[in-house]
């Protein structure tokens, strides 16, 4: 097997909300076309870390990053970075399904339209492709004009995946994408993630350790803003090097 390419690399990465340091000296390399999961107890900074990769934290006043963060060797933190361009390359699916109160079609087409793609045929094709990739096409193909808010929670979340895919990102960030869903919808999202990693680099934050074990290739365990352990998921879950990791995954705390 050829050596997998490093897609995302952060080193000595610190992140602050005002004076509070929430990410402390984290260094990680995430591989292309892999699923990397970030686990850890609530408030450990896993969502914050995830939201650094598409600079979503820029929206929070007083937020500040330090250290290096690169995608394919190119810095993504500096002031010269075109954040809009970055977010096209790095898609995101949020914790709570957040379809826009528009039709199913318009939801998926949204990212295309804001990126100045106006050709109807291209949009239609891309919408269908994206919905197929998100395993939603068969359920909605006859009602693309329906309001997206009428879909079930699981369908809404897959719609959000489709919406993110339509922009053709390279990386897909998922912030606890299944935490608001029932077990069946969760299973579908997980299948989808495994399917998607053929084409995309996926970073997923999850509270659910079984989920991390089931779907991810690599796992990062974060606690109080520090990276406790990072490695192959199979290693982390079967022979963790650190006591803290073992205690966490066996459910002794968290």
């Amino acid at each position: 097997m050829p050596l997998a390419k490093v897609k995302i690399k952060i080193s000595d990465f610190n992140f602050y909300y005002g004076q509070v340091k929430v990410i402390k000296g984290v260094s990680v390399e995430m591989l292309a076309k892999n699923v990397t999961s970030i686990i850890g107890p609530s408030g450990c900074g896993k969502s914050t870390l995830l939201r650094c990769f598409n600079r979503m934290n820029d929206l929070i006043p007083g937020a500040r990053a330090e250290g290096r963060a690169e995608i394919e060797g190119v810095d993504i933190l500096g002031p010269q970075v075109d954040v809009v361009e970055l977010r096209k390359r790095v898609g995101m699916v949020f914790q709570k399904p957040n379809p826009f109160p528009k039709s199913i079609f318009d939801n998926v087409a949204y990212g295309l339209r804001v990126n100045d793609i106006t050709d109807r045929l291209i949009i239609e094709k891309r919408v269908e492709q994206s919905l197929r990739s998100a395993a939603l096409w068969d359920e909605v193909k006859d009602r693309l004009k329906d309001n997206a808010l009428n879909l079930s929670g699981g369908q809404q979340q897959r719609l959000c995946v489709a919406r993110a895919l339509a922009v053709e990102p390279e990386i897909l960030l998922m912030d606890e994408p299944a935490s608001a869903l029932d077990p069946i919808a969760t299973a579908r999202i997980e299948e989808l993630i495994v399917e998607l990693k053929k084409h995309y680099t996926i970073v997923i934050v999850t509270h659910n350790m079984q989920q991390a074990a089931r779907i991810s290739d690599h796992t990062a365990f974060l606690m109080q803003g520090e990276l406790v352990e990072y490695g192959k998921t199979s290693d982390i879950f079967t022979k963790p090097r650190k006591k803290l990791t073992e205690d966490y995954i066996t459910g002794r705390f968290g």
């Binding site: 977010r87 096209k88 995101m92 957040n98 949204y110 804001v114």
Partner: peptide, 18 residues
């Protein structure tokens, strides 16, 4: 809702577009 703004920005919309 904030999620309307965030969702749009995450798709590469500019602030004004969102």
């Amino acid at each position: 809702p904030r999620s309307y703004r965030e969702g749009a920005l995450a798709l590469g919309a500019t602030k004004w577009q969102s």
